[in-house]
Design a protein around this nucleic acid. Structure first.
Length: 317
DNA sequence: AGCTGTACCTGCAGGC
DNA sequence: TGCCTGCAGGTACAGC
């Protein structure tokens, strides 16, 4: 599912493709997922794309920001001439997510103005218009108008887009209550304090965004395997050594996830519509009855805190 | 206060 | 074949 590595993968893509560009228009197709007034972002230039836990914040130069949470099935896909060229080069097609955009799961569309002043874009645009041969432009709105489109798709409609003043982003409930984050500001000592003082089971605790942010079901399962810790253990029963091992295991699986461009379980894709690769490297997640990568014992699946939980009954103590 | 269970929503797999 | 049920999961919220 979209967790820290997946959302960071999207952030890196947005950073590359929309920073410095102007938002020309917004089309809201499913009003319930959008709050705030879209008029407030029209004409503004994107200055930064930040991430807090699994949340994304796109800052504009007029004092407004677009906060986005993709939850389980949200996608942010950028279609512009320079991105079309790169997609073609990597031989991965938007067809992976069902072909033409917008589709029936497209709930919001941002029209982005390509800035011709950018040398990098100019270089990519010229050959791509030729290389497309009309193919890409027939399939989507990547046109000769120099505009690009950022599509928000979400099959399950769980995600949200909030248009708020930049100064109010941290007042939104999700960001206000967010715990410290792995790969950023969550230290070993802090992690130890949180774990050793919690009455819950270790696995649900790792996924509690108010205690610590960034981890979801995939990386919680894999990190506990990496640390050889049984997900059913009570958090406060872990020894200092085990907590340290777990902390390092979490950093490792998150970095691995990021290295492979995230995990595509249902329909995660990056901003170019490409799938991630970490699903091919799952340690235990989704591997019920398959042999443990270490000892060959079949991986067991149980339910913990209402969530599917995978572990090796022999390796994890 | 802190923890647990359930709703939200849709597509898909499995059973009959 | 096709309907029905159950399941997947990040977060919000109700309830204990």
């Amino acid at each position: 599912m979209p967790e820290l590595p997946e959302v960071e993968t999207i952030r890196l893509g947005l950073q590359r493709y929309i920073v410095g560009k102007k938002i020309e228009g917004v089309e809201v197709r499913l009003p319930k997922i959008v709050s705030g007034d879209p008029k407030n972002i029209i004409g503004a230039k994107v200055v930064d794309v930040r991430r807090f836990g699994k949340g994304l914040v796109t800052d504009l130069d007029n004092g407004y920001s677009i906060a986005i949470h993709i939850k389980l099935t949200g996608q942010l896909i950028y279609k512009g001439t320079e991105a079309a060229k790169e997609t073609e080069e990597t031989k991965v097609s938007i067809d992976k997510i069902g072909g033409e955009l917008p589709n029936k799961w497209t709930h919001a569309i941002f029209k982005i103005k390509n800035q011709k002043s950018k040398i990098k874009n100019t270089r990519l645009q010229l050959p791509s218009a030729k290389a497309d041969g009309g193919q890409a432009s027939q399939k989507s709105k990547v046109g000769n108008d120099g505009n690009a489109y950022l599509y928000y798709n979400d099959v399950r409609q769980f995600g949200w887009i909030k248009i708020v003043k930049t100064s109010d982003v941290q007042k939104l409930a999700f960001f206000k209550d967010l715990g410290p984050e792995f790969l950023n500001n969550l230290t070993m000592i802090q992690f130890n304090n949180i774990v050793s003082s919690s009455n819950s089971l270790i696995k649900p605790l790792l996924m509690d965004q108010k205690k610590m942010s960034g981890i979801g079901n995939i990386y919680a399962n894999d990190a506990l395997f990496e640390a050889r810790i049984d997900p059913r253990r009570k958090a406060k029963d872990l020894s200092d050594t085990e907590i340290e091992t777990l902390y390092n295991a979490i950093l490792k699986v998150l970095k691995d996830g990021l290295k492979y461009g995230g995990a595509t379980e249902i329909n995660f894709v990056n901003v170019l519509g490409q799938e991630g690769g970490y699903q091919d490297h799952f340690l235990v997640y989704g591997r019920e009855k398959q042999p443990c990568r270490v000892c060959k014992t079949p991986i067991q699946k149980i339910k913990l805190g209402g969530r599917g939980t995978y572990f090796c009954p022999k390796c994890q103590k």
